[in-house]
């Protein structure tokens, strides 16, 4: 099974040191929880793992050819596009064409009703947006999942659906889940506590 490797990684923001010579091995096939106080670097660890930001020193090695998907608070979807257009656009970026049936099926998996797909995403509620983001992640079928408090704004039904999907996907993916929520920690196979 493949893994993301942090070798001797250092990173700071101004004088705020987040990682000092950190070495980590994030193995796939399981859900890895990342927990720690605010500012400990949970989101930063996810961004490093996804090569969204580069470390000041050291290397982050990703397995060749794996694709990355994410559900994080700072990654938003297009308000001027409908739910279906958002899904189709991001899937297209990863070379996938979604049929209406596929979109309907994705909606069912994340708990979005069919008519929601014809509404501009700017008119979605917070929870609906979260579900749509998760649907995008499922649509692109990424190999590496970066989840930052993915169920923070969800009702019980939404949480149940997300947890099922995450657990079902885990064997074939590398999944990082940054959270301080006890229920989210509960579905993890392994937990990394920050600071390291």
């Amino acid at each position: 099974m493949t893994a993301i490797e942090f070798r001797d990684v250092s990173l700071s923001f101004g004088r705020r040191e987040i990682f000092r010579h950190a070495t980590l091995n994030l193995r796939g096939g399981r859900v890895i929880g990342v927990v720690g106080a605010n500012g400990a670097g949970k989101s930063t660890l996810l961004k490093l793992a996804g090569k969204i930001i580069a470390p000041d020193a050291g290397t982050v090695a990703l397995p060749e050819g794996l694709t990355i998907g994410a559900v994080t608070p700072e990654m938003k979807l297009y308000g001027a596009l409908t739910g279906a257009e958002n899904l189709a656009f991001f899937a297209r970026l990863r070379g996938k064409v979604l049929s209406p049936e596929k979109i309907f099926e994705l909606g069912r998996r994340v708990g979005l009703e069919a008519q929601a797909f014809d509404v501009l995403a700017e008119n979605f509620s917070t929870g609906m947006r979260q579900r749509l983001k998760f649907a995008v992640l499922l649509a692109v079928d990424a190999d590496i999942w970066l989840l930052d408090e993915p169920t923070a704004n969800l009702d019980d039904d939404g949480r149940e659906k997300f947890f099922t999907e995450i657990r079902d996907a885990a064997p074939d993916k590398i999944i990082l889940l940054a959270t301080n929520d006890a229920t989210e920690v509960g579905i993890c196979d392994e937990v990394i506590r920050l600071p390291l």
Binding site: G50, I52, G69, A70, E74, M75, L77, F90, L93, V140
Partner: peptide, 16 residues
């Protein structure tokens, strides 16, 4: 500003 740039950059190639 809309917060879509990080999503776009994650899912698409930089040159694209």
């Amino acid at each position: 500003q809309a917060g879509t740039l990080p999503t776009l950059k994650l899912y698409a190639d930089a040159q694209a």
